Amino acid sequence: GAYRMKIYDRDELRGQMSELTDDCISVQDRFHLTEIHSLNVLEGSWILYEMPNYRGRQYLLRPGEYRRFLDWGAPNAKVGSLRRVMD
């Protein structure tokens, strides 16, 4: 299947937008971000990790809009890595 997600540095799907279609071992290295404040999962399911290298707390992201970090259940906006959930 296809995988696509848009990430934003501000809440409510605002601010600088970056797009992912594959795994990202370090959000900071690739996008120069340490925080993601909202996101829109367009295709596929993903796991968001608090730390790089797929470590730390993890949150399942199904397709849909997440307008603030509380929407995916996190206590803050800190994001380290993102990985696709393969079928």
Rank of each mutant, 00 (worst) to 15 (best):
I47Q: 04
E35Y: 07
E12F: 05
R14T: 08
D29H: 15
R55L: 07
G80N: 03
L39D: 00
Y66A: 03
T21M: 07
V41T: 03
G15C: 09
R83Y: 03
D87S: 05
E43S: 08
E35Q: 07
Y59T: 04
G73P: 00
D23H: 08
H32C: 11
Q16S: 08
F31S: 13
N40Y: 12
Y49R: 01
R57Q: 11
V79H: 03
R83I: 06
G1I: 14
A74S: 07
G44L: 01
Y54N: 02
A74H: 08
Y3K: 15
R4I: 12
V85P: 03
D9W: 09
R84D: 14
Y54V: 01
R62S: 09
V27K: 01
G80C: 13
D23I: 01
L70S: 13
M5L: 08
Y54W: 05
K6M: 14
Y49F: 07
E19M: 04
D29I: 04
G64A: 03
M17D: 13
R30N: 07
P63E: 08
V27F: 12
D11T: 11
F31N: 15
I36G: 10
D23C: 15
Y66R: 04
D22W: 09
G80D: 00
R62V: 05
L39S: 04
C24G: 01
L20I: 14
D11L: 13
S26R: 13
G15Y: 04
R62H: 13
R10T: 14
R55C: 10
Q28W: 06
M86R: 14
D11M: 12
L60F: 11
L82W: 12
P63I: 05
T34V: 04
P52E: 13
D9F: 12
Y59C: 12
R84L: 05
N40S: 11
A2S: 14
D29L: 15
L20H: 05
P63F: 03
R62N: 11
D71H: 04
E43D: 10
D71V: 05
R83S: 11
D9P: 12
A77C: 04
L70R: 08
P52M: 05
H37E: 10
Q16M: 09
V27M: 09
L61A: 09
L33V: 06
P52Q: 06
L61Q: 02
L82N: 01
R14W: 09
E43P: 02
D11Q: 09
N76M: 12
T21W: 12
R67W: 08
H32N: 12
V27Y: 10
V27R: 01
Y59F: 14
L13V: 14
P52R: 05
R10G: 10
Y3H: 07
G1Y: 15
S81M: 00
S18L: 08
C24N: 06
M5Q: 00
F69G: 14
A77W: 15
R84A: 09
D9T: 12
Q58F: 07
P63L: 02
L70G: 09
L33N: 08
Q28R: 07
H32G: 12
R67M: 06
D87Q: 14
G1C: 11
N53Y: 05
G1R: 06
R55D: 05
Y66G: 02
R10I: 04
P63G: 05
R67D: 15
R57D: 05
R4L: 08
G15L: 03
D11N: 06
M86G: 09
R68H: 10
H37V: 14
I36N: 01
A77M: 15
S26Q: 13
L42Y: 03
R30T: 07
M5P: 03
M17C: 13
A77H: 11
E35G: 10
R84E: 00
R68C: 12
W72T: 01
L13Q: 15
L82Q: 01
V41L: 13
H37D: 12
N76D: 09
I47E: 08
E12H: 07
E43L: 05
G44Q: 02
D23Q: 03
D71P: 08
G56V: 00
R67I: 14
L33R: 08
Y8F: 05
E65I: 15
I25H: 06
L33M: 12
Y3L: 15
R83G: 02
G15D: 14
Y66Q: 02
G56T: 00
T34F: 07
S81G: 02
L42Q: 13
I7S: 02
N53I: 03
R57W: 03
L20T: 11
R62M: 04
M86W: 13
E35L: 04
I7Y: 02
N53Q: 07
H32D: 08
P63T: 07
P52A: 06
Q28N: 09
R4V: 05
L13H: 14
M5C: 04
D71L: 07
V27P: 03
N40K: 13
D29G: 11
M5D: 02
K78R: 08
N76C: 10
G44M: 01
K78A: 07
I7R: 02
W46A: 01
R55Q: 15
L20R: 01
N53D: 12
W46Y: 11
Y54L: 03
T34G: 05
Q28D: 10
F31W: 14
Y66P: 01
R62L: 05
Y54P: 00
Q58W: 07
P52K: 12
G80L: 02
E12D: 07
Y8G: 08
E50V: 01
D23P: 03
L82T: 05
E19G: 14
L60M: 13
